[in-house]
Amino acid sequence: MKKRLAITLMIGGSLFIKAQVGINTSAPEAILHVDGQKNTVPSTSTSYYDDVVITSSGNMGVGTKLPKTRLDLRSDEHLNALGIGGTSQTASAAKAGAMRYNSGTQDMSYSNGSSWVALAHKAPNDFVDAENSSTQNFTSGTQATVINWTKKTDVNGSFNSGTGVFVASKTGVYIVSFTFSLASGTIADDSRYETLIQTNSTSTATNKVFKCVGSYPGTNSLSNRVAGSCSGIFNLNQGDNITVSLNQALGTAKTLDAAGSLTSLSIFGL
């Protein structure tokens, strides 16, 4: 009896060693073969795009049944991105060779065993260039955000032209320049205007508002075009916003000049 049991165990053990496990497939082609959508056609390379295999050499293939490395993502459908997230681990805890994504600076870094080292690649800096020919109306004595811009350039899609809100795609220093021109009209005596560049940034290294003021003291009997400009430098965190506003106190409602090139906005991230 013991002899028969020993033979049975030997045969069972041999079968176990040589076994291949298939999930969603009755014909596994590796030690472990998972056919995600149960659609694999043997020997048809394009049908393995949703498969995962582990070979007898310990290699794992995602989208390929013939992995050449410990982890091989090279499938015929070419949707082979590798997702890497951030980590709060120290470089020494993660050990040398670990990698992480830095959402604030939008770059990758690797651990050398003692510190995180940024890779040479750098995400494009934000750059916005816009004009405004919307003839937006501004009530005298009321501050209003300038809206309905026409974008000429927006490298990272960070600027909402309709609302006039810019959102920093990464942490850094930003230079903002705003110019405006109002349609010709009467100007009240001793009147003025303010152009404002504002941010919601929590950075202690930047001002919340840059204001530039223009004034028309004394008696103003003529009809004139009012124009002005303002610039500012901001330290922004990723997700902080910038808006530009106008507060004119010229006596009557004013509209932006219809010539778009006379009202412009540029934002550049360093």
Rank of each mutant, 00 (worst) to 15 (best):
P67D: 02
L15E: 06
V128S: 04
G239E: 11
D240Q: 00
V146T: 03
A144E: 01
G12S: 14
S261G: 13
T255G: 06
V213H: 05
T142C: 03
I197T: 05
L119H: 06
S191M: 08
F166D: 07
M60H: 00
S75V: 03
A94E: 00
Q198A: 13
N237I: 04
S56A: 15
G214R: 05
V117F: 10
N235E: 13
C212S: 14
K95V: 13
E194C: 07
L222R: 11
S177M: 09
T135F: 08
I233C: 03
I187A: 03
D76C: 11
K38D: 13
G97W: 01
G83F: 15
G12V: 15
L196W: 11
L236D: 03
T206H: 04
G12A: 15
N247P: 00
G83D: 14
K152N: 13
F166Q: 02
S161Y: 06
V21G: 02
T199L: 12
A258S: 09
V176L: 04
V34H: 08
Y49P: 00
V176T: 03
A253M: 05
T195H: 14
F210R: 07
T44K: 09
N102Y: 11
L79A: 13
V62L: 14
T179N: 15
V226C: 09
D107Q: 03
E29F: 08
E77D: 15
L15G: 06
S47T: 15
V41E: 08
N237K: 10
A94C: 00
G228I: 05
Y49A: 12
L73S: 04
L79I: 12
K65Q: 08
I7S: 11
S134F: 12
T252S: 13
D76E: 14
V209A: 14
K65A: 06
Q89G: 09
A98T: 06
R100I: 00
T150K: 06
N80G: 06
I267H: 01
T139N: 12
N237G: 11
D72T: 05
S261V: 09
L246Q: 00
S75R: 11
N160M: 01
F178D: 02
G164I: 04
G58Q: 01
G239D: 03
H121I: 06
S75W: 01
S191P: 03
N247V: 06
L9D: 14
P42T: 06
Y216V: 07
G13H: 11
A91I: 02
V117I: 15
L9H: 04
N137E: 14
E29H: 10
N59K: 14
G86A: 06
T40M: 14
Q198H: 08
Q89A: 12
D107G: 07
L262A: 08
Y48Q: 10
Q248I: 09
C212N: 14
T25W: 02
A96M: 07
Y101M: 01
W116R: 00
G260C: 01
P124Q: 10
R100L: 02
